[in-house]
Design a protein around this nucleic acid. Structure first.
Lengths: 133, 133
DNA sequence: GCGTGATTACTCGGATACAAGATGTCCGAGTTTGAGCGG
DNA sequence: CCGCTCAAACTCGGACATCTTGTATCCGAGTAATCACGC
Protein backbone atom coordinates (compact mmCIF):
# COMPACT_ATOMS: atom_id res chain seq x y z
CA UNK A 1 0.00 0.00 0.00
CA UNK A 2 1.88 2.99 -1.30
CA UNK A 3 1.21 5.99 -3.43
CA UNK A 4 2.75 5.55 -6.85
CA UNK A 5 5.77 7.49 -7.99
CA UNK A 6 3.54 9.18 -10.51
CA UNK A 7 1.73 10.87 -7.62
CA UNK A 8 5.05 12.06 -6.32
CA UNK A 9 5.96 13.53 -9.69
CA UNK A 10 2.57 15.17 -10.04
CA UNK A 11 2.75 16.86 -6.65
CA UNK A 12 6.26 18.12 -7.25
CA UNK A 13 5.43 19.39 -10.70
CA UNK A 14 2.44 21.29 -9.38
CA UNK A 15 4.45 22.82 -6.58
CA UNK A 16 7.18 23.82 -8.99
CA UNK A 17 4.69 25.50 -11.29
CA UNK A 18 3.08 27.23 -8.33
CA UNK A 19 6.36 28.67 -7.13
CA UNK A 20 7.39 29.77 -10.61
CA UNK A 21 4.12 31.14 -12.06
CA UNK A 22 5.63 32.88 -15.09
CA UNK A 23 3.55 34.06 -18.01
CA UNK A 24 5.36 31.70 -20.38
CA UNK A 25 4.62 27.99 -20.09
CA UNK A 26 7.32 25.70 -18.76
CA UNK A 27 8.52 22.82 -20.90
CA UNK A 28 8.39 19.19 -19.88
CA UNK A 29 12.14 18.96 -20.26
CA UNK A 30 12.71 21.48 -17.52
CA UNK A 31 10.29 19.77 -15.13
CA UNK A 32 11.75 16.38 -15.90
CA UNK A 33 15.31 17.51 -15.21
CA UNK A 34 14.38 18.67 -11.74
CA UNK A 35 13.00 15.26 -10.85
CA UNK A 36 15.25 12.91 -12.82
CA UNK A 37 12.44 11.45 -14.88
CA UNK A 38 12.16 10.88 -18.58
CA UNK A 39 10.23 13.73 -20.23
CA UNK A 40 7.92 11.42 -22.12
CA UNK A 41 6.85 9.63 -18.97
CA UNK A 42 6.29 12.87 -17.13
CA UNK A 43 4.16 14.14 -19.99
CA UNK A 44 1.81 11.20 -19.50
CA UNK A 45 1.35 12.23 -15.89
CA UNK A 46 0.85 15.88 -16.72
CA UNK A 47 -1.76 14.92 -19.29
CA UNK A 48 -3.84 13.57 -16.43
CA UNK A 49 -3.56 16.87 -14.62
CA UNK A 50 -4.65 18.64 -17.78
CA UNK A 51 -7.73 16.44 -18.03
CA UNK A 52 -8.44 17.16 -14.37
CA UNK A 53 -8.47 20.87 -15.27
CA UNK A 54 -5.61 22.03 -13.05
CA UNK A 55 -3.11 22.97 -15.73
CA UNK A 56 -3.16 23.55 -19.46
CA UNK A 57 -0.71 22.70 -22.19
CA UNK A 58 0.59 24.91 -25.01
CA UNK A 59 1.74 23.19 -28.16
CA UNK A 60 4.49 24.21 -30.49
CA UNK A 61 7.81 25.90 -30.00
CA UNK A 62 8.26 27.48 -26.58
CA UNK A 63 5.24 25.51 -25.48
CA UNK A 64 4.82 23.68 -22.23
CA UNK A 65 2.56 23.56 -19.22
CA UNK A 66 1.00 26.37 -17.27
CA UNK A 67 -1.31 26.66 -14.29
CA UNK A 68 -4.92 27.16 -15.19
CA UNK A 69 -7.31 29.74 -13.85
CA UNK A 70 -8.59 28.73 -10.43
CA UNK A 71 -5.56 26.66 -9.54
CA UNK A 72 -5.34 28.38 -6.16
CA UNK A 73 -8.13 26.11 -4.91
CA UNK A 74 -6.44 22.88 -5.96
CA UNK A 75 -5.77 20.66 -2.94
CA UNK A 76 -3.43 17.76 -2.41
CA UNK A 77 -6.37 15.41 -2.54
CA UNK A 78 -7.41 16.73 -5.95
CA UNK A 79 -3.99 15.94 -7.35
CA UNK A 80 -3.83 12.54 -5.74
CA UNK A 81 -7.27 11.65 -7.02
CA UNK A 82 -6.33 12.80 -10.50
CA UNK A 83 -3.45 10.34 -10.59
CA UNK A 84 -4.55 7.45 -8.41
CA UNK A 85 -8.25 7.55 -9.12
CA UNK A 86 -11.02 8.15 -6.64
CA UNK A 87 -11.72 4.61 -5.50
CA UNK A 88 -11.56 4.22 -1.74
CA UNK A 89 -8.71 2.18 -0.40
CA UNK A 90 -10.79 -0.60 1.06
CA UNK A 91 -13.60 -2.66 -0.35
CA UNK A 92 -14.98 -5.65 1.43
CA UNK A 93 -15.90 -7.88 -1.54
CA UNK A 94 -17.65 -10.20 0.85
CA UNK A 95 -21.38 -10.69 1.03
CA UNK A 96 -22.08 -10.82 4.71
CA UNK A 97 -24.98 -8.48 5.01
CA UNK A 98 -25.45 -4.94 3.76
CA UNK A 99 -22.71 -3.26 5.81
CA UNK A 100 -19.31 -4.55 6.75
CA UNK A 101 -18.26 -3.27 10.16
CA UNK A 102 -14.62 -3.66 9.19
CA UNK A 103 -15.10 -1.55 6.11
CA UNK A 104 -16.81 1.12 8.15
CA UNK A 105 -13.82 1.44 10.43
CA UNK A 106 -11.28 1.61 7.65
CA UNK A 107 -13.29 4.11 5.63
CA UNK A 108 -13.72 6.27 8.69
CA UNK A 109 -9.95 6.30 9.13
CA UNK A 110 -9.44 7.06 5.46
CA UNK A 111 -11.80 9.98 5.78
CA UNK A 112 -9.63 11.47 8.50
CA UNK A 113 -6.64 11.36 6.17
CA UNK A 114 -8.52 12.82 3.24
CA UNK A 115 -9.79 15.66 5.34
CA UNK A 116 -6.22 16.71 5.97
CA UNK A 117 -5.28 16.37 2.30
CA UNK A 118 -8.33 18.31 1.22
CA UNK A 119 -7.57 21.36 3.34
CA UNK A 120 -3.98 21.62 2.15
CA UNK A 121 -3.67 23.55 -1.11
CA UNK A 122 -0.64 23.79 -3.32
CA UNK A 123 -1.08 27.54 -3.20
CA UNK A 124 -0.63 27.75 0.57
CA UNK A 125 2.40 25.52 0.43
CA UNK A 126 3.96 27.59 -2.33
CA UNK A 127 3.42 30.79 -0.31
CA UNK A 128 5.08 29.35 2.77
CA UNK A 129 8.08 28.31 0.72
CA UNK A 130 8.42 31.73 -0.85
CA UNK A 131 8.47 33.32 2.61
CA UNK A 132 11.42 31.17 3.59
CA UNK A 133 13.44 32.23 0.54
CA UNK B 1 -3.54 2.89 -3.94
CA UNK B 2 -5.59 0.24 -2.27
CA UNK B 3 -5.23 -2.18 0.56
CA UNK B 4 -4.69 -5.67 -0.75
CA UNK B 5 -7.30 -8.39 -0.51
CA UNK B 6 -4.98 -10.19 1.84
CA UNK B 7 -5.53 -7.41 4.36
CA UNK B 8 -9.24 -7.87 3.98
CA UNK B 9 -8.95 -11.59 4.62
CA UNK B 10 -6.70 -11.03 7.61
CA UNK B 11 -9.08 -8.57 9.25
CA UNK B 12 -12.08 -10.80 8.70
CA UNK B 13 -10.27 -13.85 9.97
CA UNK B 14 -9.24 -12.07 13.13
CA UNK B 15 -12.74 -10.79 13.73
CA UNK B 16 -14.15 -14.24 13.19
CA UNK B 17 -11.73 -15.77 15.67
CA UNK B 18 -12.52 -13.02 18.17
CA UNK B 19 -16.23 -13.62 17.98
CA UNK B 20 -15.82 -17.38 18.24
CA UNK B 21 -13.07 -17.80 20.90
CA UNK B 22 -13.52 -21.51 21.52
CA UNK B 23 -10.94 -23.60 23.32
CA UNK B 24 -10.37 -25.71 20.22
CA UNK B 25 -8.47 -24.14 17.29
CA UNK B 26 -10.38 -23.37 14.12
CA UNK B 27 -9.24 -24.95 10.87
CA UNK B 28 -8.22 -23.02 7.79
CA UNK B 29 -10.94 -24.74 5.82
CA UNK B 30 -13.65 -23.26 7.97
CA UNK B 31 -12.20 -19.76 7.76
CA UNK B 32 -11.71 -20.06 4.03
CA UNK B 33 -15.27 -21.17 3.41
CA UNK B 34 -16.63 -18.07 5.15
CA UNK B 35 -14.68 -15.82 2.83
CA UNK B 36 -14.64 -17.76 -0.44
CA UNK B 37 -10.86 -18.08 -0.58
CA UNK B 38 -8.70 -21.07 -1.21
CA UNK B 39 -7.48 -22.54 2.07
CA UNK B 40 -3.85 -22.69 0.99
CA UNK B 41 -3.79 -19.03 0.14
CA UNK B 42 -5.44 -18.06 3.38
CA UNK B 43 -2.90 -20.11 5.28
CA UNK B 44 -0.11 -17.98 3.84
CA UNK B 45 -1.83 -14.90 5.18
CA UNK B 46 -2.45 -16.42 8.57
CA UNK B 47 1.20 -17.40 8.75
CA UNK B 48 2.04 -13.71 8.71
CA UNK B 49 -0.30 -13.12 11.63
CA UNK B 50 1.38 -15.97 13.48
CA UNK B 51 4.78 -14.39 12.94
CA UNK B 52 3.35 -11.10 14.15
CA UNK B 53 2.40 -12.88 17.37
CA UNK B 54 -1.37 -12.36 17.24
CA UNK B 55 -2.46 -15.95 16.75
CA UNK B 56 -0.87 -19.35 17.00
CA UNK B 57 -1.23 -22.46 14.93
CA UNK B 58 -1.74 -26.03 16.06
CA UNK B 59 -0.56 -28.81 13.79
CA UNK B 60 -2.01 -32.24 13.31
CA UNK B 61 -5.51 -33.55 13.33
CA UNK B 62 -8.11 -31.14 14.71
CA UNK B 63 -5.47 -28.45 14.45
CA UNK B 64 -5.98 -24.94 13.23
CA UNK B 65 -5.56 -21.37 14.40
CA UNK B 66 -6.31 -19.82 17.73
CA UNK B 67 -5.97 -16.37 19.25
CA UNK B 68 -2.86 -15.92 21.30
CA UNK B 69 -2.57 -14.49 24.77
CA UNK B 70 -2.77 -10.72 24.71
CA UNK B 71 -4.86 -10.55 21.53
CA UNK B 72 -7.27 -8.14 23.21
CA UNK B 73 -4.77 -5.34 22.57
CA UNK B 74 -4.38 -6.03 18.86
CA UNK B 75 -5.49 -3.04 16.81
CA UNK B 76 -6.51 -2.68 13.18
CA UNK B 77 -3.20 -1.01 12.48
CA UNK B 78 -1.28 -3.98 13.89
CA UNK B 79 -3.04 -6.33 11.52
CA UNK B 80 -2.62 -4.05 8.53
CA UNK B 81 1.05 -3.61 9.24
CA UNK B 82 1.51 -7.35 9.61
CA UNK B 83 0.19 -7.87 6.09
CA UNK B 84 1.13 -4.73 4.19
CA UNK B 85 4.38 -3.96 5.95
CA UNK B 86 5.21 -0.88 7.93
CA UNK B 87 6.57 1.34 5.18
CA UNK B 88 4.85 4.68 5.04
CA UNK B 89 2.74 5.32 2.00
CA UNK B 90 4.81 8.15 0.59
CA UNK B 91 8.52 8.52 0.01
CA UNK B 92 9.92 11.43 -1.85
CA UNK B 93 12.89 9.74 -3.58
CA UNK B 94 14.10 13.16 -4.67
CA UNK B 95 17.18 14.85 -3.31
CA UNK B 96 16.05 18.42 -2.84
CA UNK B 97 17.32 19.14 0.62
CA UNK B 98 16.88 17.25 3.86
CA UNK B 99 13.12 17.60 4.21
CA UNK B 100 10.48 17.49 1.52
CA UNK B 101 7.56 19.74 2.39
CA UNK B 102 5.28 17.61 0.27
CA UNK B 103 6.25 14.49 2.14
CA UNK B 104 5.66 16.21 5.45
CA UNK B 105 2.09 17.03 4.46
CA UNK B 106 1.28 13.55 3.24
CA UNK B 107 2.84 11.84 6.23
CA UNK B 108 0.91 14.15 8.54
CA UNK B 109 -2.29 13.08 6.84
CA UNK B 110 -1.29 9.44 7.03
CA UNK B 111 -0.68 9.85 10.75
CA UNK B 112 -4.25 11.02 11.22
CA UNK B 113 -5.51 7.86 9.58
CA UNK B 114 -3.21 5.59 11.56
CA UNK B 115 -4.28 7.18 14.80
CA UNK B 116 -7.82 6.05 14.11
CA UNK B 117 -6.72 2.55 13.14
CA UNK B 118 -4.53 2.25 16.19
CA UNK B 119 -7.29 3.00 18.67
CA UNK B 120 -9.69 0.48 17.16
CA UNK B 121 -9.15 -3.01 18.52
CA UNK B 122 -10.59 -6.21 17.17
CA UNK B 123 -11.73 -6.96 20.69
CA UNK B 124 -13.95 -3.89 20.91
CA UNK B 125 -15.44 -4.57 17.53
CA UNK B 126 -16.18 -8.17 18.45
CA UNK B 127 -17.91 -7.05 21.66
CA UNK B 128 -20.13 -4.60 19.83
CA UNK B 129 -21.16 -7.28 17.37
CA UNK B 130 -21.99 -9.71 20.12
CA UNK B 131 -24.24 -7.12 21.72
CA UNK B 132 -26.25 -6.84 18.55
CA UNK B 133 -26.83 -10.57 18.36
C1' DG C 1 -7.48 -53.54 29.06
C1' DC C 2 -3.28 -51.70 27.21
C1' DG C 3 0.46 -50.57 24.33
C1' DT C 4 2.06 -50.10 19.64
C1' DG C 5 1.87 -49.04 15.01
C1' DA C 6 -0.76 -47.39 10.97
C1' DT C 7 -3.96 -44.18 9.16
C1' DT C 8 -5.96 -39.81 8.81
C1' DA C 9 -6.54 -34.92 9.15
C1' DC C 10 -4.41 -31.05 9.53
C1' DT C 11 -0.66 -27.18 9.14
C1' DC C 12 3.86 -25.50 7.20
C1' DG C 13 6.83 -23.78 3.79
C1' DG C 14 8.88 -23.59 -0.69
C1' DA C 15 8.35 -23.57 -5.64
C1' DT C 16 5.72 -22.19 -9.20
C1' DA C 17 2.19 -19.98 -12.23
C1' DC C 18 -0.65 -16.23 -13.56
C1' DA C 19 -2.57 -11.51 -13.92
C1' DA C 20 -2.61 -6.80 -13.29
C1' DG C 21 -0.69 -2.52 -12.59
C1' DA C 22 3.24 0.64 -12.34
C1' DT C 23 6.96 2.30 -14.81
C1' DG C 24 9.24 3.64 -18.74
C1' DT C 25 10.45 3.96 -23.96
C1' DC C 26 9.59 4.86 -28.83
C1' DC C 27 7.64 7.05 -32.57
C1' DG C 28 4.48 9.36 -35.71
C1' DA C 29 1.36 13.37 -35.94
C1' DG C 30 0.07 17.93 -35.11
C1' DT C 31 1.22 22.86 -33.80
C1' DT C 32 3.49 27.07 -32.96
C1' DT C 33 7.57 29.98 -33.22
C1' DG C 34 11.08 32.00 -35.62
C1' DA C 35 14.44 32.40 -39.15
C1' DG C 36 15.52 32.76 -43.99
C1' DC C 37 14.56 33.96 -48.57
C1' DG C 38 12.50 36.22 -52.43
C1' DG C 39 9.80 39.87 -54.13
C1' DC D 1 10.30 46.15 -45.85
C1' DC D 2 6.80 42.64 -46.33
C1' DG D 3 5.08 38.15 -46.97
C1' DC D 4 5.81 33.43 -47.85
C1' DT D 5 7.92 29.07 -46.87
C1' DC D 6 10.42 25.92 -44.31
C1' DA D 7 12.85 24.10 -40.48
C1' DA D 8 13.13 23.55 -35.60
C1' DA D 9 11.20 22.90 -31.09
C1' DC D 10 7.72 21.38 -28.68
C1' DT D 11 3.48 18.69 -27.05
C1' DC D 12 0.10 14.83 -27.82
C1' DG D 13 -1.32 10.24 -27.88
C1' DG D 14 -1.03 5.49 -28.84
C1' DA D 15 1.59 1.29 -28.94
C1' DC D 16 4.81 -1.35 -26.90
C1' DA D 17 8.29 -3.36 -23.46
C1' DT D 18 9.63 -4.41 -18.81
C1' DC D 19 9.38 -5.07 -13.97
C1' DT D 20 7.23 -5.57 -9.67
C1' DT D 21 3.62 -7.10 -6.86
C1' DG D 22 -0.63 -9.31 -5.66
C1' DT D 23 -3.09 -13.42 -6.08
C1' DA D 24 -3.40 -18.14 -6.25
C1' DT D 25 -2.16 -23.18 -6.80
C1' DC D 26 0.43 -27.43 -6.02
C1' DC D 27 2.97 -30.57 -3.47
C1' DG D 28 6.11 -32.73 -0.22
C1' DA D 29 7.18 -32.73 4.72
C1' DG D 30 6.03 -32.72 9.40
C1' DT D 31 2.81 -33.36 13.34
C1' DA D 32 -0.79 -34.71 16.31
C1' DA D 33 -5.03 -37.27 17.15
C1' DT D 34 -7.46 -41.38 16.42
C1' DC D 35 -8.30 -45.95 15.13
C1' DA D 36 -7.04 -50.90 14.68
C1' DC D 37 -4.69 -54.67 15.94
C1' DG D 38 -2.25 -57.87 18.77
C1' DC D 39 -0.71 -59.07 23.32
Amino acid sequence: MKYSKATNYALHSMLFLAVATPEKPIGVQQLADKQNVSPTYLSKILTKLVKAGMIESASGASGGYRLKRGWEQVSFLDIIHAIEGTTSLFECSLDHGPECVIQKVVLDAEDKMERRLREQTIYDLAQSIKNVL
